[in-house]
Design a protein around this nucleic acid. Structure first.
Lengths: 336, 336
DNA sequence: CTGTTAGCGCGTTCAC
DNA sequence: GTGAACGCGCTAACAG
C-alpha cells in the first residue's frame, strides 16, 4: 500500500507538502503541486480516509435505519436520502431494524464506533433507556417517528390531514358507512391517520363507530386480517380506509376472497402512494405522500445541521389524494 | 471524547491492558479486566473503529452497488446481502449506480478511500479501463454480471434455463406463436434468457422468428413499448415471454390498452418473481429466481474470501417456474 | 500477567 | 513556499 510518505519521496518533497498539494489547502508552489500530483498518479496513491478522519474530523458517512428494505415504502425513502448524501459526497450506510428496538440499539452502537456523522431514523421503535443512550449526542433526524428523543429533528407528512382527505373523498362519493383498518396503535402515524378519519366523519355529521375500526400491522396481512375481522362483526360498510397501501392490498385480496367487487360494492383507499399502487388493477386510490422528498429533506437537515448551527426543529410535508379505480360513488342498491 | 487512555487512568492500568481487556485478546487478570470494564462503563467509553482499522486491519464494512434501489428486484437482493453482513458484524454501505459506469467508478473510488473490505457488484456496467482500475485489488463478488473482471467471483441464476422453462411452459399450453420482449442486448442475463427461449422453441420444432423478438429496457416502459412494437409488426402471437417482471407488467398494460384479454387472448410470462408479481391481478406467471439467496451467497462468498483462501469461482443458482394467472391454454379460436 | 515503546497514515501546528 | 515534529486512538511487538 502506497502512502503519502512514498509520494513525498517520489516527488522529492516532504509529506506536509504532499498533504497540502492533495487537499488544495494552503500555499503550495504551482510546479511543486504538479510534481506531487504526478508522483501520486504514477504510484497509484490512494488517500486513506480512515487516517484523515482520525483527526476528529467528520467521516463523510451517514446511516439510514429502516425497518425492512423490502417493504416498498422504504426504498423510495432511502433513494431520497441517498440522493442528498451523494450530492454532499457522503457515503450511506444502510441498516435494517425489523422494527426491533434492541436490534436498532445494536446497530446504532456499531455506527457510533464507526463514527458516522449522523443518522436518519425511520419508523417506529419502542422507546427505551438503551435507545436513548445509543442516540445520545448523535446527530439524528427522524422520519415519521414521534420526537421522543431530545433535540432530534423530525420530518414527516401531514398524516392527520391525509386521513381527513381519504375520508372526505369517500364521504363525497356518498359513503356513510366507512370502515377503517388502521395501523398499530403504538405508531403515531397510524394514530394521526385515524384521528384525521374521525375528524372528517364528525365534521360531516357522520357517527364515529368504533366497531368499524380494526387495527393491524402495516403489511398486507394486517389489511387482509383486518378486513376479515370487520366482516365478522356483521356491521355493514361500503368503503374502507386502510392504514397504508400494503394494508389496502391485503384488504383488496380479502374482498376478492369473500366475493365483494371493488369498487362496485366496496370502495378502498390506501395511504402512501407507493409505486405499487399504480401498478395494481384496479389502480389503488390513495393518499399520496412525497416519500422520496421525505428522505431528501431528512438527509438535508442532517447534513445541514453539521454545517449550519441554526436549523428548523422539524418539517411537515403536504399530502394529497390520488384518485384511481378502487373508489366509486356509493350505490344506494343494498350492499352489506 | 473519552479515549482508551482515560480509561487506563481511571482503572489505574496501562493503555495496553485496557486494549487487551476490551478485545479479550491475550492474558489479562480476571480482576484487572473487571476493573477496566467498569472504568470504561463509568466513563462512557466508546471504542473508535477508525483507529483500530488504521492498523491495516479490516474495516468491517462492505458495500453493495445496485443500479436503483427503487427497482423492486434490488431491495430483495440487498436484504440478502445485509443479512449475511449483519451476521458477520459488518456494516453495509449502499451505493446506486443508475447503471452508469462512470458513477460506479466514482463510488468505487470513494469506497476504496474508505477502505471497505469488499464489494458486491450488481447489474450490468459498461466495461472500461477506469472501471477495471477502480476494481483492481478490491475483493469483489458480482451478481448477474459477466465476469469480465479478472479474478472476481460471480453469483447468478441459471437464466438460460429460466428462459427455457418459461418457453416450454407456453409450448405445453399449446402456444405456437410465442413472442419475446427481451432485455438489453449488452446484458448477459438478457441474452441468456433469450437463448433459453430460442433453445426451447427449436427443441419443440417451432421456428425461431426474429420478427417476434423485440428488445427493451428492463423496466415497465421497455415492456410496454416492446409489446406495442410487436403489434405494429402485425405478426400474430398468442403468448409473450418478457425479459423480467417489470417488463411483463408493462406488457400487461399495453395489452390492456389495445384490448387484448390476459390470459384468454394472450398469455404472459415474466422473469424474477419479485414480490410484486404475486400482488398483481391476474397474478403473474413467472420464472422464480432466488433473489434474496443470490444476495446471501454473494455476501457469503465475499466475506468468506477474506477469511478462507480457497473459494469457488462462481455459483449458479437454480430457477423454476411459478404458474399464476397470466398464462392459459391456447384457444384454437382465432386470435391475432 | 502487565507496562513501554513504536508505529498505522495523515493533518497541523510551528519554525525556517 | 516548505519542512520537522507532534498527535489523532489504538494495536502490536517487545520487554519485564
Amino acid at each position: 500500500m502506497v502512502t503519502i510518505r512514498d509520494v513525498a519521496a517520489e516527488a522529492g518533497v516532504s509529506i506536509t507538502t504532499v498533504s497540502r498539494a492533495l487537499n488544495e489547502s494552503g500555499r503550495v508552489g504551482r510546479a511543486t503541486r504538479e510534481r506531487v500530483l504526478n508522483a501520486a498518479r504514477r504510484l497509484g496513491y490512494e488517500p486513506n480516509d480512515l487516517a484523515r478522519s482520525l483527526h476528529g474530523k467528520a467521516t463523510g458517512t451517514i446511516a439510514v435505519l429502516v425497518p425492512d428494505i423490502t417493504n416498498p415504502f422504504f426504498p423510495e425513502l432511502v433513494k431520497g436520502v441517498q440522493e442528498v448524501a451523494t450530492a454532499h459526497q457522503k457515503l450511506l450506510l444502510l441498516c435494517q431494524t425489523s422494527e426491533d428496538s434492541e436490534i436498532a440499539v445494536q446497530e446504532l452502537l456499531h455506527l457510533r464506533r464507526k463514527r458516522v456523522d449522523g443518522v436518519v431514523l425511520v419508523g417506529g421503535l419502542a422507546a427505551s433507556e438503551q435507545l436513548d443512550a445509543a442516540l445520545a449526542g448523535l446527530p439524528v433526524v427522524a422520519v415519521d417517528r414521534d420526537t421522543t428523543v431530545d433535540g432530534s429533528r423530525v420530518v414527516r407528512s401531514d398524516h392527520r390531514r391525509g386521513g381527513r382527505l381519504a375520508t372526505e373523498h369517500l364521504i363525497e362519493l356518498g359513503h356513510e358507512h366507512i370502515a377503517h383498518v388502521r395501523g398499530p396503535a403504538h405508531l403515531s402515524v397510524a394514530q394521526d391517520r385515524h384521528d384525521g378519519y374521525r375528524e372528517a366523519l364528525e365534521e360531516a355529521g357522520l357517527p364515529y363507530d368504533a366497531s368499524l375500526v380494526v387495527e393491524g400491522g402495516f403489511l398486507e396481512e394486517g389489511g387482509y386480517d383486518g378486513l376479515r375481522a370487520l366482516r365478522r362483526r356483521r356491521r355493514p360498510f361500503t368503503a374502507v380506509f386502510c392504514g397504508n397501501d400494503l394494508m389496502a392490498i391485503g384488504a383488496l385480496r380479502a374482498l376478492e376472497d369473500v366475493g365483494l367487487a371493488v369498487p362496485d360494492e366496496v370502495s378502498v383507499v390506501g395511504f402512501d402512494d407507493i409505486h405499487l399502487a399504480s401498478y395494481l388493477r384496479p389502480g389503488l386510490t390513495t393518499v399520496h405522500q412525497p416519500i422520496q422528498t421525505l428522505g431528501r429533506r431528512a438527509a438535508a437537515l442532517l447534513i445541514g445541521s453539521a454545517m449550519n448551527d441554526e436549523q428548523p426543529a422539524s418539517e411537515v410535508l403536504d399530502v394529497h389524494i390520488v384518485r384511481r379505480q378502487t373508489t366509486a360513488r356509493h350505490r344506494r342498491t343494498e350492499v352489506r
